[in-house]
Design a protein around this nucleic acid. Structure first.
Lengths: 190, 190
DNA sequence: ACGACACGTTCGTCAACCCGAACGGATGGA
DNA sequence: TCCATCCGTTCGGGTTGACGAACGTGTCGT
């Protein structure tokens, strides 16, 4: 019934199909051989690499074991480099208690460092940031004012309550568009 | 059907079942509510949390999106009990040269999970939070309005730009003192 | 007390995932 | 040339995952 499922991150199936073929070719084994090692029918694997169907987790798990790669490498899709959560549009965990809403902006993975900054900017000054170490990710919530930020090639404009995350290992910038702009920045690096 | 799933790496289903219930309770929503947001039947979710069956990747994916957690966290086994850091490979705390006009609020330690929340409250309601798991720490920056928060025994009052950190493993509360109060909350748990 | 509602579970039913088998095509040895 | 073997794909059939409905329970609000 409810087909308002449409979120910008699509189905995981195409990502799995691509990753499966990529990892298999990296391993240099045939489709039939991989199916044999994973203990699944090669017909199933054929369908999977074609992007048809919706495999069960055990099937994908067995393929991951046979390929010697962690499960997550098979499902991680080329991540949308920039993700914005507009104020009020988060994957909300709207609380049972009225008048209280909490929005999960970014769940933390273990073994990453996340440093929390409070930054303040005034209009007229553009801050260009050099790339950080590879794998860095920035999370930013605008508290007040307006802020244009993001990778130099793909800036976004944010207002109070808006959230954005983008890679920190490419050139990026911060530019205030209104007086009194400040924001919370969580810098994540492996 | 007895497939030599080889290693101590058991089936992913029990891990998913545990992770699913853990993440759902962390989000503080009911089973029916999560099923509604993920667009799946609550009966399906009930079976899943019970550890029965073998879900498809799309089902798990939808749950991950609805929970706001990366797919990998739903299939990851609980963190390794023993972790080895070889000599010379320790967590070298390199200082970020200040290329931000930012204030470092709390340096991140490795091996902790930090989840970023955006919370909004209205006056007149007091949000009492149960203690989280031992070792939890909360970091909070007020973006707008006024907020009284902290451990129940020792609340503090904050305005825009103010930052507070306090233990999350004791009873604590949030109370808005002005309309339109919202804040960034970073919850840190080991 | 009573109904209304949400929670989580259990129970048939339908669709589809996974399977084995058979297919056409490419390669190589006798 | 013939055929043996591997490749990857396509074709019915059994098993099972996902769904909607109904159930029992607990907790509100009237």
């Amino acid at each position: 019934m409810d087909r308002t499922q449409s979120r910008s991150d699509g189905s995981p199936v195409p990502a799995i199909a691509a990753a499966l073929r990529r990892e298999r070719e990296r391993a240099g084994i045939s489709l039939a051989e991989l199916a044999r090692r994973a203990g699944i029918a090669k017909s199933t694997l054929s369908q999977l690499e074609a992007g048809n169907g919706n495999p069960s987790v055990e099937t994908v798990w067995a393929l991951g074991v046979a390929l010697g790669v962690p499960f997550s490498r098979l499902v991680e899709q080329p991540p949308p480099a920039v993700r914005v959560i507009r104020a009020g549009h988060g994957p909300g965990l709207r609380s049972q208690q009225a008048e209280f809403t909490g929005t999960l902006l970014a769940a933390g993975a273990p073994q990453v460092r996340r440093d929390i900054y409070l930054i303040e900017l005034e209009p007229g000054q553009v801050r260009d940031a050099e790339p950080h170490i590879p794998g860095s990710v920035e999370h930013l919530v605008v508290a007040a004012g307006r802020l244009r930020t993001g990778p130099a090639a793909e800036p976004v404009e944010l207002g109070p309550g808006d959230y954005v995350t983008f890679p920190g290992d490419v050139p990026h910038r911060y530019e205030a568009l209104a007086p009194g702009t400040f924001a919370v920045l969580v810098m994540e690096h492996p």
